[in-house]
Design a protein around this nucleic acid. Structure first.
Lengths: 333, 333
DNA sequence: TCGCGCATGGCAAGCGATTGCCAAAAGTTG
DNA sequence: CAACTTTTGGCAATCGCTTGCCATGCGCGA
């Protein structure tokens, strides 16, 4: 492997007949060095195959040009959009992208932040499971932005599932449904709360009965329990915490001989890969999750400059929209 | 954010009444310091909330406790298994995990390796698009392991798609098919070559006609072109480069009124999320991809010690197995 | 001609750990 | 008890870059 000695600022400096500081500035602060000198230094550097050592640079300057994205569950296709968007935005700025997996645990999340602290310039937390208090406290010492979670005083980018839930209710209401049950996700999930808040508020407005069951494991495997519970509830429309759960429910309902959408309607959230080709194709609340990931990184990168300018952190809200497919239909008699 | 001054070895040293070197050793080389002293140092460190700065440590020691996984395409669910496995194995060893996305480009891959070089202890390349020559050359200066790609002299972990392809042919042959067409993936894809090699060899052995078409974009969107081309070929069995392509083909075939599996049979590779609930459910060659990701990291971590012991790099081959679902059936008359 | 300011480059002190080497203390052995 | 080994801790150099501060030289106005 690497028995090769990489060249350093000093090698370049010697070869170019300047001081190391000049080499450093030629790369990082062009205005600080004469254009001719700079050109010369860059040429020599090129010839020697010099690349600045990011570790040494970070150690001295405190800037790592690296960010970390922490997600609760790598297995969940829902996060792929966020991951892609975040990675793309980071690499567009030449920033190294660390992916951390917190296993749906707030402690784990906290631990990763502490561990990575010095190695990154900041964190993007996707669907963070930490309490508001813990989050705020950590934010005092660590640069961070949230995705699909809002906490007072912190920059965040969310897909408006709360508001979007209204679209679900309107859709169901127009199909004649009078009762809906929400199959809830993890208890610490801010999104689960938002979704329920949106659903119950909208249901209230149009006189529809709304109940909540759960929590259920937000995976395909959780669908069986959710479907059974939903059937017992007597509601005609089932809204699942996410598409994985919804797909699992569809499967269970089919097993039990319940016809969707004739007997019951099913709605999910996220519009994940597969939502369009499961059977029946799933009606679901889609959102620009890739965009949210991108925005999360953007907010993080801007945070320091905004704070310096005395501006408040931004809370970006991206619109969600309902994709109507085959899993919803008129309420049964 | 972080106006806080983190404590350093020196703070701990002063507070504990020892030298900084002792503090350092208390953490990294326990045998080198008396058990009582060590305990004391650790207590003081704990009290001061000391955490070693990984950057400073890496700069001096050359060890970063970080690895990078490079994948061609974050959007492809096929890689999720690999990513999960690799992440899990890395974090089990307390190793920071960098995810890089190479956009199916060999140049990009190379550039990332050069860029990250000093920041990581090594690279795991998943389905690398680089030529053997480039790979070997880079491997001289960089610690790396391959997943789903074999190159002479480098450690690798692959899912045996070449061998597994025989299972596909056997399955199709037993259903009476006499001709098969392979809808190929990216030209630089080693896997695509392996799959075709396996298919054509096995087909030859049982007197089945095998042809190859393509390359096609290995995504759902590529399925339409692939399906149309496959139909023209006249073969009764279609083997797609991966499940995404296969799902796209199923969709196109349905549009065109071709019934699967009655009129044609379709097989994919990877058994991705969704392969079991698309319609018809997809027959596909499944493999332990998570395991492959894990093994890739494992090989990387062991590489240095094995090289020191004069052992040759290992080439791990993990078995694939055919999952028969509804997209394959008896050959039409 | 003198003085002043600005552009440019160099010096050297860090950043926070690791580690080779040395010395003192403690333990072993005959 | 002398001589020798082993254990343990400290010193100080080092990893490669950044950056505050100083020195030089030049242009330019008065």
């Amino acid at each position: 492997m690497s028995p090769v000695r990489r060249s350093t600022v000093y090698d370049v400096a010697r070869e170019a007949g300047v001081a190391a500081s000049t080499v450093s500035r030629a790369f990082s602060d062009p205005r600080r060095v004469n254009a001719v000198t700079r050109e010369h230094v860059l040429n020599v550097a090129e010839r020697l195959g010099y690349r600045p050592n990011p570790l040494a640079s970070a150690l001295q300057s405190g800037r790592t040009a690296t960010i970390a994205l922490l997600v609760p569950d790598i297995a969940n296709p829902h996060f792929f959009g966020t991951i892609r968007g975040a990675e793309a935005r980071a690499s567009a700025s030449g920033i190294t992208f660390i992916l951390g997996y917190t296993q749906e645990s707030a402690d784990n999340e906290r631990e990763q932040i502490l561990r990575l602290d010095r190695s990154v310039d900041g964190f993007v937390l996707a669907s963070s499971r930490m309490s508001d208090a813990t989050t705020v406290e950590l934010a005092r010492e660590h640069n961070m932005a949230l995705v699909n979670r809002q906490v007072e005083g912190l920059p965040s980018a969310i897909v408006d599932n709360g508001g979007g839930s209204r679209q679900i209710i309107d859709h169901l209401a127009s199909l004649g449904h009078r009762s809906v049950v929400y199959l809830s996700g993890p208890e610490q999930s801010w999104q689960a709360k938002e979704r329920w808040r949106g659903l119950s508020a909208a249901a209230g407005r149009c006189g529809m009965a709304a109940t909540r069951l759960g929590p259920f494991s937000p995976r395909v495997a959780g669908g069986a329990a959710a479907a059974d519970a939903a059937l017992v509830s007597g509601a005609t429309a089932f809204v699942a915490h996410n598409d994985l759960l919804a797909i699992g429910m569809l499967r269970r309902l089919a097993e039990r001989g319940i016809r969707v959408p004739r007997d019951r309607s099913v709605v999910g959230y996220d519009d994940i890969f597969g939502a369009d080709f499961c059977v029946p194709a799933l009606t679901t609340l889609a959102g620009p999750h890739e965009e949210a990931g991108r925005a999360g990184v953007e907010l993080l990168l801007n945070r320091v400059s905004r704070a310096a300018a005395g501006e408040a952190p931004r809370q970006v809200v991206l619109p969600a929209h309902l994709v109507v497919r085959d899993s919803t239909g008129p309420a049964p008699d």
